[in-house]
Design a protein around this nucleic acid. Structure first.
Length: 599
RNA sequence: GGGGAGUUAGUUCAGCUGGUUAGAACGCCGGCCUGUCACGCCGGAGGUCAGGGGUUCAAGUCCCCUACUCCUCGCCA
């Protein structure tokens, strides 16, 4: 038997043809007389019918078929007449079988191979090859394959070279924790798995390749999230002689192409741009979900203006201590029950908040149900009402205190409310694709622990020229050419224009408190490279897993990765990471030190 | 590293204030059935209640520890 068609393509145009299909038994309905089989391959489902008077041997054998048997059938495509199944793409026809070959029988699967199942993920990951038989996962991975092909085509069309970089490199400090690989040939030395090809791609620019891209795995040994895996795929891009706008238009063109070809959706370009500071103020993070409002309002200055006279020591003291005050409004038409609003407080506390001050706005702008309402001065209350645009019946939520905590709590409250209040449209309902660039973040962040300024992203990002004078005096003021592309609340990519001027580079290191010797020891090869006529350059990396996750509407990043790891970085199918024997460790000059046994 | 949820037939779950032999649906096995497509009907098998310890006359149920999974904060230039 030689396969002639797939299970997804037969229509009434094929009626009368003799066909051969290979696939898996997706469902069976045995009437004793007629036996119906839904045959499945990656392209779809086709109903096959075995009848005793057509092919007695095949019919007899068909009686022994069970779910997930791998089989081949030969037969004639016939119309289903009055029995058309409108739910099936191939529902107009069926194949009347005259021959059946069983390639392989199957044990009963540990969970049903159906589009929608409730089986817990642990079980599904253990039998990943069976989970991957399910149509939603097959389609996600087929879409992902298409995204890869489209990306390569687009990049090559635009003059980019696909160049490879090593996974095993030298550990460089900063950034994510690296996975380390011991070297057998170099006792006691270790490679670091690349957390990204960052330094190599800059060296490609120094080497004069001008436009580089790569669809490449990256490795980061950090705690995992629903949108984070220890190994993940980036579309890595670097360009010479470009401005930020040049990078943006290349990436916008790529994303536009992907959405058009994979979903038939036209996404408008250029994307909206938002200042980093604005994003933090209105949304509490640098990856705002713009599909709904519920924006934060910063009240810090207002509270400071009223000072102690505002009547609310909590707020005033928070501001005095260098903190901030933020509010967001739950509109009256989405009124929360007392229990729901208490639940919000629980959520806020879970994220480090001390509490969640609330105020219900009355007809005359007065506040009720609030610890703030008793002592607040009418003037401050009126100013706040005006600033947040509160209407009677609205509920105003407040956070105040340390900036980082307030932003985190408020950002998560906003997202929680967005979902809870139904502001986020379902995937497939026409959807909304709110792409934007978040631009001009600060170059440095103050690290409370070490009491020093640290690079907010990496130490090779180009500062704004007009901020250069502040490098030595007020590092927090220095903004840089760093940008993130954000979609619906997910950072799907980020990059920067790089520093190519060794003089400015030296100033940045100085501001970071990195000595010349340190810099040399850590990044010597890059610093050397920049001295040999390095071109101005910049680039970006897109998170391919996240793009596929968002584009396909998957529930989890794990659904667009064929063999994902669990939350704790284990592979439940293979058992990785696993033990190796003593001899292997000796060869690597490595000794395992087991953690202390709990008592 | 912190906080939270969960773990009972192959699967999804129920199992109340502790009380005889732990149930249901689907799946599986056997039988019947020629137009089903969530096929139908009859019968059957299937459980270390995650693991360990404790309280109790008695534990799936209460307490403690451990493991694993998920969510979340920190972390992720």
């Amino acid at each position: 038997m030689k396969r002639t068609h797939t299970c997804g393509e037969l229509t009434d145009a094929h009626i009368g043809q003799e066909v051969v299909l290979f696939g898996w038994v997706h469902n069976r309905r045995d009437h004793g007389g007629a036996v119906f089989i839904d045959l499945r391959d990656r392209e779809g489902l086709t109903q096959v019918v075995f009848e005793p008077d057509i092919a007695p041997e095949a019919h007899e054998l068909a009686g022994s078929l069970r779910l997930e048997y791998c089989v081949g059938i030969r037969g004639k495509v016939v119309s289903r007449g009055a029995n058309v199944n409108p739910k099936m793409k191939t529902g107009a026809i069926e194949v009347k079988a005259n021959a059946l070959t069983i390639f392989n029988r199957s044990e009963a699967a540990p969970f049903p191979i159906e589009d929608h199942i409730d089986t817990n993920e642990e079980k599904r990951l253990q039998y990943r090859y069976l989970d991957l038989r399910r149509r939603p996962l097959q389609q996600s991975l087929m879409t992902r394959s298409r995204m890869n092909a489209l990306t390569r085509a687009y990049m090559v069309e635009n003059g980019f070279l696909e160049l490879e970089t090593p996974f095993m490199g030298k550990y460089t400090p900063g950034g994510a924790r690296n996975f380390l690989v011991p070297s057998r040939l170099n006792p006691g030395k270790l490679y670091a798995l690349a957390e990204s090809p960052q330094l190599y791609k800059q060296l490609f620019m120094v080497a004069g390749f001008e436009r580089y891209f790569q669809i490449v795995k990256c490795f980061r040994d950090e705690d995992l999230r629903v949108d984070r895996q220890p190994e993940f795929t980036q579309v890595d891009v670097e360009m010479s002689f470009v401005s930020q706008d040049d990078v943006f238009s290349v990436i916008e063109g790529l994303l536009q192409r992907l959405w058009k070809e994979c979903l038939g959706v036209d996404i408008p370009t250029p994307f909206m741009r938002m200042e980093y500071d604005e994003s933090m103020a209105k949304y509490g993070n640098d990856k705002p979900d713009l599909r709904f409002g519920l924006e934060h309002v910063v009240l810090t200055d207002l509270v400071r203006k009223h000072g102690a006279a505002g009547g609310v020591p909590m707020l005033w003291e928070a501001v005095e201590a260098g903190g901030i005050v933020k509010a967001l409004v739950v509109p009256s038409e989405k009124a929360l029950s007392r229990a729901e609003s208490d639940k919000l407080e629980e959520i806020a506390k879970g994220m480090g908040a001390k509490g969640l001050a609330r105020a219900k706005v009355g007809e005359g702008g007065e506040w009720t149900q609030s610890p703030l309402s008793k002592t607040i001065s009418p003037a401050l209350r009126a100013d706040i009402n005006e600033a947040v645009g509160a209407k009677p019946g609205d509920l105003v939520l407040f956070q105040f205190g340390r900036e980082a905590v307030v932003h985190t709590v408020m950002a998560n409250l906003r997202l929680h409310l967005g979902k809870k209040l139904g502001y986020i449209p379902e995937y497939g309902s026409g959807g909304q694709w709110r792409f934007l660039w978040v631009v001009n973040p600060p170059l440095f962040e103050y690290d409370e622990e070490s009491k020093t300024w640290v690079a907010a992203h990496h130490a090779f990002t180009r500062p704004h020229d007009e901020d250069l004078p502040h490098l030595g005096t007020d590092p927090g003021r220095v903004k840089c050419y760093r940008y993130d592309v954000v979609l619906n609340g997910f950072e799907v990519g980020g990059g920067s224009i790089r520093l190519h001027d060794p003089k400015v580079q030296a100033e940045v290191f100085r501001a970071l408190g990195i000595s010349d010797e340190d810099a040399r020891a850590k990044f010597g090869f890059l610093l050397d490279a920049l001295k040999f006529g390095a071109p101005p350059h910049g680039g970006i990396a897109l998170g391919m897993d996240r793009l596929a996750f968002l584009l396909t509407g998957a529930e989890s990043l794990r659904d667009v990765i064929p063999f994902p790891k669990t939350k704790t970085g284990t592979d439940l199918m293979t058992g990785a990471p696993g033990d190796v024997d003593e001899r292997q460790l000796r060869e690597l000059h490595v000794r395992a030190v087991p953690p202390p046994q709990p008592k």
